[in-house]
């Protein structure tokens, strides 16, 4: 009974998101190269965003979860296209020429 009422998933998620925040903070407190720091920040940020979306904004718990996930995938895809494309035309192309 107690077990069913206790929001295990949410509590674990909350702890995990705190851990992610702590890991991201390490970039500030420890000395590391720009590349490593950026990688840590990006990875933790994306996991964090996904976690919040699924656990605390309840994506996937309602009937229209397909619509929600399709729009999220679509949005992520567009964002990736836009960012990589912009980097390619504005930055990378000049570095490799």
């Amino acid at each position: 009974m107690m077990k069913e009422l206790f929001p295990m998933k949410q509590v674990m998620g909350f702890i995990f998101s705190l851990v992610l925040t702590a890991v991201a903070l390490m970039v500030y407190f420890f000395d590391m190269s720009f590349a490593i720091g950026m990688t840590i920040l990006l990875v933790t940020a994306f996991i964090q965003a996904g976690l919040q979306l699924v656990l605390f904004m309840h994506a996937g718990e309602s009937e229209d979860k397909n619509a929600i996930y399709i729009t999220i995938y679509y949005g992520v895809l567009i964002a990736i296209f836009t960012i990589l494309g912009s980097l390619l035309t504005m930055v990378w192309t000049y570095q490799f020429q």
């Binding site: 895809l77 836009t82 035309t89 192309t93 020429q97």
Partner: peptide
């Protein structure tokens, strides 16, 4: 709707980003 987001550079081919990017 997908492709319309991946063609924008055709408005400034002459900006100087080079043949590789322009070809894409």
């Amino acid at each position: 709707s997908l492709l319309s987001f991946v063609v924008w550079v055709h408005h400034f081919f002459t900006m100087g980003q080079g043949a590789f990017v322009n070809s894409i």
